[in-house]
């Protein structure tokens, strides 16, 4: 009886093969063919030889790294305070931090850009980092908050009872135990930052092009094969980071809601 019920997943498996696996294979297919369907490496070579592609890729990695660190630096203390029963008793406060996500991200980004304009601040790298931190902070706070909330507080208490200073307790107990939350927070901030397109255009007035924008531009100009090659590069990097983080982590904890 139990064996048979496993077939209930069949519609979903077929759906996934058609709409997830096949499309990803098509990215690889288009990346390695030219407009007439003939095999070629020139699209992939284009990524390494065209300075524009490589530059925007490196800039994206840099911006994503900075954004992730900013979100972690601001978000970790928030998650810690929210999960501390002495400092915060109401669940509503935690809810307030994810509420902005229900407002359309592009609309919020436009408003952020308008605020900078209103204060006469030139749009550029600084405003990009500031605006991105707005957009991604909740994604960093929530997984860490979830893990800290479920964490057994007696470990930290035991460490303190055995004479560890508060800083030592944090570094040796709380921080390592919250690692799964940090990893899923980083995953939820880093890759999306590399790949955003509209957000960076709005926040920098088109002066900084992130990798996502470059990919989108290729498709907009009907250069599907080149666009697919750039997407493939990104896909490979995602694959590598995923394997790396899942090895370190084992099980993915946290997540949103």
């Amino acid at each position: 009886m139990f064996r048979k019920r496993s077939t209930w997943a069949l519609p979903y498996v077929i759906f996934m093969v058609l709409f997830v696996v096949l499309p990803l294979l098509l990215i690889a297919f288009y990346a390695m063919t030219d407009g007439n369907g003939h095999f070629t490496f020139s699209n992939i070579a284009g990524f390494f030889t065209d300075a524009k592609f490589l530059n925007s890729f490196l800039v994206s990695l840099e911006v994503a790294l900075e954004n992730t660190l900013i979100c972690l630096a601001i978000g970790y203390p928030v998650a810690m305070i929210l999960s501390n029963k002495d400092l915060n008793k109401s669940a509503v406060t935690a809810l307030l931090f994810i509420l902005p996500m229900w407002i359309n991200a592009l609309m919020r980004t436009m408003a952020t850009a308008e605020i900078f304009n209103a204060f006469g601040i030139q749009l550029g790298k600084g405003t990009l980092l500031f605006g991105m931190a707005y957009d991604y902070l909740p994604f960093m706070i929530y997984p860490i908050y979830n893990v800290l909330n479920k964490m057994d507080k007696s470990y930290a208490e035991a460490a303190a009872d055995l004479g560890a200073k508060p800083a030592t307790v944090f570094l040796k107990v709380t921080l390592p135990l919250s690692m799964p939350g940090i990893i899923s927070g980083v995953m939820m901030v880093f890759m999306p930052t590399v790949s955003t397109f509209a957000v960076s255009e709005i926040l920098t007035n088109n002066t900084i092009q992130l990798f996502g924008s470059v990919i989108q531009e290729q498709f907009y100009n009907m250069m599907w094969n080149q666009g697919a090659a750039l997407a493939l590069v990104m896909l490979i990097i995602i694959g590598i980071t995923t394997i790396f983080s899942s090895k370190k982590d084992g099980e993915a904890e946290g997540g949103l809601i």
């Binding site: 997830v20 098509l26 999306p192 790949s195 997407a231």
Partner: peptide, 27 residues
């Protein structure tokens, strides 16, 4: 195997999902 497949769309950034489905519908 199925859970691995289930993870793919969650790990993919939106743009990859978008581009891959775009190519599927074109194809």
């Amino acid at each position: 195997a199925v859970q691995f497949m289930n993870n793919i769309p969650m790990l993919n950034p939106d743009i990859i999902t978008g581009v891959s489905l775009f190519l599927l519908f074109v194809f």
